[in-house]
Design a protein around this nucleic acid. Structure first.
Lengths: 343, 343
DNA sequence: TACTTTTGTTCAAACGTTGAAACAAATATA
DNA sequence: TATATTTGTTTCAACGTTTGAACAAAAGTA
């Protein structure tokens, strides 16, 4: 019952006794079409409940008005709010957004890229899976001439636009704060240094320690995947040291949470005995007790800039604009887990 | 430099000296095409790096192989894992998924629906925004003959397939558990009763109290949006009663968390003085101290069933299959916040 | 009056793929 | 040998929209 023939541009033309071509031009507000015809067309279009056939116009124009977004996992405040912003910016310009999750898997990422290319997206905005080391599929996007913007997890070797925060400086902010709180032995639960952002956080951590005249101790720097379990494991390891740290800086909130659990299980006072700082400012950091100090990455800002950068590329596809590497500032959100003085 | 002409079916045809039609048939493994031709076509397709033009085929076939999914907010474990599953099931059958967030706003939801219809999706899977009362845009989907599946937040009046859990029974499970723990005055931080699922939870709560011979007290049932702030506000309200409850059952985890915060701020022992149960089993329920007992809704299961139901509709569009109202069982995950006995 | 310009529209081809129908050649059946 | 069937391919139109070129009519200029 429900499925009725869709009205096309041709139906409107028939009603008015003009050609489909005139209707098409009227609908796109062509200057050579008379106002009389335009209003008539609009009127009939409404009456017949006309919906333009996106497929046909996309085929003809060679443009789908679809943009693909690849993220590791939607299930995090950081990524979901970036997507929200990207959608907002792109929808306004008539683009629709297709979201694909890689689930941190290289294989799934490749499949997603193929799916997006098959759907003929006009551009892709992506944050790479942790696992990804080979860049062949991203090269494939580039080789098809489809604009690609990376955010957060990017790769310098790819030579594409990138939007992210200043990880190096963020580490400085964290260390400076901890030093102000009187901490002298600061451990770092780090991400894998083969990923750019984690490498920079480590570098920032080291340099900042140096800046404040604190010794760098390799046993206090431990790389991992930064999951809860990693945090727990590494915190246990740190507690077993003969000389315990008086602060822990985790490069991810989940790892920080795991560390917090272990500290509490061992009745170690946070922040008095050991101060704790995380990274990403996931909502739960403010919900747990004690609340966890973390680094806010201004996700909406990242999403906005990524989308706008893509729009720029789409508007001037041939223009050889120089690469954009946009590094936005981050902010330290100080909470109970690190506040020893003036609480 | 990068943007080169895309190879089409015609290019392949030219190389082999056959018609595009033959190539098309070879690629779709038509039985009447010789194996010789098929392998030749495949070979050349690979050589020329041929990628089928989805737009053209979609236009011709009147099928986009795109499915739209509308959710209130990706930023929750529940919804993001449902999406993950939907994607998994649909990708396997050659469908791509477009995700749209309504952000719990009716207006945004309408815009999303229009966008999806414009993109010519073959079907839509949706969970309604809290705000949504008018069903006109959903009727629009139906009137276009596009299969629509609702999950979690559905509306009986719409007369479409629905997948969700048994909210009524879930409340029974919760109350039964609390009664077993010795609770006698159980408050309910409820969702708005104009939404089906919350209405059912309230009904289940009332009936279960009756079943266990406990009196129903209207002052112990308070409806809200179930956000953290709602939880805090309502918990304060409950604490001001001359006769305090000895247990609180919140219809959402965030509300439960807000309640927990207030209880802790007032140094009320959870679960000894007041036991607490939430709903949805968001990951943070196991992360806070004490961990919060909650109802697991088997999101992957919901996603799987929703996707499969849609596939069924897509496969037999004209078949007047009777409506599917699939009610899956939920599970109570008991944690510290409600465990008074045999801890 | 004759010519140019402007205005409003139609014509026709194209975007890339598909599938029913037509066709010729090869093979099977009588 | 004549006829029917099968096999492999081509022909052609279609999906709905867009766009440059063509065209006629109206308006402007000389």
């Amino acid at each position: 019952m429900a499925a009725k023939k869709k009205t096309t541009i041709k139906d409107i033309a028939n009603v008015l006794g003009i050609t489909p071509s005139a209707v098409s031009k009227a609908l796109s507000n062509h200057p050579r079409i008379s106002d009389k015809t335009k209003t008539a067309v609009l009127q009939i279009a409404q009456n017949l409940n006309y919906q333009p056939n996106h497929l046909a116009s996309a085929l003809r124009k060679g443009k789908s008005n679809l943009v693909g977004v690849i993220i590791p996992k939607a299930n995090s405040h950081f990524f979901s709010s970036i997507i929200e912003k990207i959608e907002e910016v792109l929808n306004e310009k008539g683009y629709n957004v297709i979201i694909a999750q890689s689930n941190e898997s290289y294989k799934k990422e490749c499949k997603s890229i193929d799916a997006l290319l098959y759907t003929q997206v006009d551009g892709i905005i992506a944050s790479m899976a942790n696992e990804t080391i080979k860049l062949d599929y991203y090269e494939k996007i580039k080789s098809k001439g489809i604009p690609l913007i990376l955010f957060d997890r990017g790769e310098n070797d790819l030579n594409v636009d990138y939007v992210g925060i200043d990880d190096y400086l963020s580490s400085h902010m964290v260390i400076e704060h901890l030093v102000e709180q009187g901490c002298k032995r600061i451990a770092h639960i780090a991400g894998f240094s083969h990923t750019r952002i984690y490498k920079n956080r480590i570098r920032g951590y080291r340099d900042a320690l140096g800046k404040f005249g604190l010794p760098i101790e390799e046993s206090l720097i431990i790389e991992s995947n930064l999951g809860i379990e990693d945090g727990r494991r590494i915190m246990k390891q740190l507690l077993e040291l003969k000389d315990r740290p008086d602060a822990v800086y985790a490069a991810g909130d989940y790892a920080a949470l795991g560390a917090l659990q272990i500290l509490q299980e061992n009745h170690i006072d946070v922040p008095k005995d050991i101060a704790l700082v995380g990274f990403t400012n996931e909502p739960f950091t403010s919900l747990v007790t004690p609340s966890i100090t973390s680094v806010e990455q201004h996700s909406e800002q990242i999403g906005k800039v990524a989308a706008e950068t893509l729009l720029k590329r789409l508007d001037s596809p041939n223009e050889k604009v120089s690469l954009n590497k946009l590094i936005l500032p981050a902010a330290l959100i100080v909470r109970s887990s690190s506040q020893k003085v003036n609480a």
